[in-house]
Amino acid sequence: MEFQAKNLPTDKLRTVYICINTAIYVIQVCIWIYLLVDYSSIGDLLGKIFIAVVSFVAALGFAIYGGRLFFLLRRFPIESKGRRKKLHEVGYVTAICFACFLIRCFVVGLSAFDRDASLEVLDHPILDLVYYMLTEILPSALVLYILRKLPPKRVSAQHHPIQ
């Protein structure tokens, strides 16, 4: 059984994560199918509100759980190996993900109620590029850069590599 730092079981966490993601994707696909079959401004509005709410919940999740992990790491003794590096990693990833999901929530929410702020700007591809660069590509690249070093592989006590 896997355990967290506070010795709480996490064996059902993966199942819950997969179920929630599956439900969100199924709802989104249903909205897309509805809009393809019978496009209406109400369906479009509901789709945008759904994405804005999902983005807000994701931002809130990063703020709550990333913040909790950040403050948990701050309580470790200063002598802890790698504490400062992990603290910075967690802080940066939390801040980047929180900001990106909050920006997406705001922009999609604004586009749901203001026709002039539409995200489907086919005649302005540069605006699309800037939006997706700021909310998708740049944050993903930053997170990958921050987490670029993988932890070393564990070597079992019984097996010793040949030198």
Rank of each mutant, 00 (worst) to 15 (best):
M1S: 15
M1Q: 14
Q4N: 05
A5C: 01
N7M: 11
N7E: 06
L8D: 06
P9G: 04
D11Q: 11
K12Q: 08
L13D: 10
R14G: 04
I18Y: 13
C19W: 13
N21V: 08
N21R: 05
N21Q: 10
T22S: 13
V26L: 15
I27D: 04
Q28M: 11
Q28A: 13
C30Y: 06
I31E: 15
W32N: 05
W32I: 15
I33D: 00
Y34Q: 02
L35I: 10
D38E: 14
Y39A: 01
Y39V: 01
I42N: 00
I42V: 13
G43L: 02
G43P: 02
L46H: 00
K48A: 06
K48H: 12
I49M: 05
I49S: 00
F50T: 14
F50C: 13
A52Q: 12
V53L: 15
V54I: 13
S55C: 11
S55F: 07
V57L: 15
A58L: 13
A59T: 05
L60W: 02
G61Q: 10
F62W: 14
A63D: 07
I64K: 15
Y65N: 09
G66Q: 12
G66M: 14
R68L: 15
L69M: 12
F70L: 08
F71K: 10
L73G: 05
R74Q: 12
I78G: 15
S80W: 14
S80A: 12
K81S: 09
K81T: 07
G82N: 03
K85H: 13
K85Q: 14
K85G: 03
K85L: 13
L87G: 01
E89P: 02
E89G: 02
V90Y: 05
V90R: 02
V90D: 02
G91C: 04
Y92C: 14
V93P: 02
T94C: 04
T94Y: 00
T94D: 01
A95M: 11
F98R: 03
F98V: 12
L102P: 05
R104P: 04
C105R: 01
F106H: 03
G109L: 11
G109P: 08
A112V: 05
F113S: 00
F113H: 01
D114G: 02
R115M: 00
D116C: 00
S118H: 00
S118T: 01
L119Y: 06
E120Y: 06
L122S: 07
L122W: 09
L122V: 07
H124I: 12
P125I: 05
I126C: 05
L127H: 03
L127R: 05
D128T: 03
D128N: 09
L129Y: 10
V130K: 06
Y132N: 14
M133K: 04
L134R: 05
E136P: 03
I137F: 15
P139F: 01
P139L: 06
S140D: 07
S140Y: 00
A141C: 10
L142C: 11
L142T: 06
L142F: 04
V143C: 04
I146E: 03
R148M: 12
L150W: 08
P151A: 04
K153E: 10
R154S: 10
S156R: 06
A157P: 06
A157L: 12
A157H: 09
H160Y: 07
H160M: 11
H160P: 01
I162W: 15
Q163D: 13
